[in-house]
Design a protein around this nucleic acid. Structure first.
Lengths: 123, 123
DNA sequence: CATATACCTCTAGTTTTTCTAGATGTCGTT
DNA sequence: AACGACATCTAGAAAAACTAGAGGTATATG
């Protein structure tokens, strides 16, 4: 059973709800977990959630388009396989170009996150 | 003189250009610098650039709409003043609600950035 | 057997946020 | 007068992610 969408009114509005992801990090995160081992889409969601200790939530609706884009770019490749649960699933693995891209994105993230931290630490 | 927009072709394409901001951090960054002292729009751009040591680049086209939104939300208030250069400029200062919001956003950023770091550090 | 549930993939349409590419105007200097 | 640095602002496009589903399979449960 699907829960009805939460309706917010002036009275029960708890304020802006923050997103569960930092925009712009999805590709990098996907490349990263795939650099550890090939996974299928569902598994990627679980893995990110697990490693991030439930702080990061990858939506299916964001993930699959992203996976297709990464495939287009040549950074990952997919193949059909069977899961531990005996279901067929499309597995993704990082390509050599993908590993390079991961390094580029990680370095860029680091620079910007450090810069944000510097601003936020100013007194 | 305005420089022509850089045209990229197959041959000189250097790859995806990374954005100069982490999406979702603009509001927080603006609230933060305004928590240090009131500033006008132009000054906010300069200040962020300065503190971040040129890593973060706030575009005017992003900034002013953001300032208007923050004003709408009641997190900042504006007033006309004179700059050191004797030009009139709209200054923005943080409200009490804005300070609260800054704390909320900073805490949220911290959690997510930490989570991203944890994923990126996994081996 | 029937049905439910967890697993798994995928997409259309919308929203949010930022960027591009300007227009407009002022002050001080040459 | 003309220019460059300073300063505000907006329309429209683009990028990325979210909402809200549809669809399908294997296994467990009534």
């Amino acid at each position: 059973m699907r829960l009805p969408p939460t309706t917010r009114t002036k009275d029960n509005d708890v304020g802006k709800q923050q997103p569960d992801m930092i925009r712009g990090t999805l590709d990098m995160l996907v490349l990263k977990v795939l650099s550890l081992e090939p996974l299928h889409g569902w598994g990627i969601c679980e893995r990110v959630k697990l490693i991030s200790e439930d702080e990061l939530q990858v939506n299916q609706g964001s993930l699959y388009p992203a996976l297709h884009k990464l495939t287009q770019e040549g950074w990952i490749k997919s193949y059909w396989g069977l899961t531990e649960n005996n279901r067929k699933a499309r597995y993704y693995r990082l390509t050599r170009a993908g590993l390079k891209q991961l390094n580029v994105e990680a370095a860029h993230w680091d620079r910007l996150a450090t810069a944000v931290a510097r601003v936020m630490a100013t007194s």
